[in-house]
Design a protein around this nucleic acid. Sequence first.
DNA 1: AATGGTACCAACCGCGGAACC
DNA 2: CGGTTCCGCGGTTGGTACCAT
Length: 255
Amino acid sequence: MRPPRFDKFGMKKGAWSKDEDDKLRAFVQKNGHPNWCEIPKLAGLSRSGKSCRLRWMNYLRPNVKHGNFTKEEQDVIVDLHSKHGNKWSMMAAQLPGRSDNEIKNYWHTHLKSRVNIESNKIRNEQIESIEPRKANTEGGSMKLSNSKMIQDEVGILLAVLSSNLPPSSSTRELSSLSGSDNIVPSDVTPPRSCKQAGSFWTEPFLLDNEIHASSNEKIFSPLGSTNDLICQASFQDNIIDDVLLWSTFESYFLI
DNA sequence: AATGGTACCAACCGCGGAACC
DNA sequence: CGGTTCCGCGGTTGGTACCAT
């Protein structure tokens, strides 16, 4: 809680004491709240009207609920947020006993990340259904567990890239993503390091042998094996150049 | 046990719109 | 009709609790 303090007008700020809660509750229950600006004076509180209103709306008014949100409440919030965005007061109207502030906090701390994860999952599944990975049917040597995170990230990248295609781009073009360069402008050349790391552009996630695996490791974990990096300085230079180019390429398409 | 990082959440702040003068 | 006041909303802040190292 924020420790109590006083502003330049002598108004108290910070956490509410039980005494203040009692005063405000008693006053509002007896007189209502026709004018929040007058209430602090009339109730004998050194608080702003705004602060009183917030305290009442979020904690003191009757039937206000606290504690865990039920599954039904969570579903309502997710549903309404998907339809209307950050309309917390509207959500509060649909959830008796919940304040907009509490819903907002719950969204940011619990639901937002969950919804993001689920939407990414759905998006990746959609991409998978459009073009099942060749790796799953060819060779069968892909190291799934090691490359899962990379798959996820590249899946998101492909989805974003596809959303940046020109209007003329078709599903057919998207469907051939992993098999051709269709999404890449003809003047953009894939980084050499990506090619070296197992034909990135044609078989994006195949790490077929130890050489490919170690190359890939250097790309994504350049500090992993210092001696090797020193011995292979020229190779490393190429990697750095290519990673920079690749970053530029990503920025160009992701913005 | 000490320290740093992170999650949680109550409260604050600024703004826009409605109501009032 | 313009200015002022008040209300409500949504974004942000900051303190506490908890967890990991």
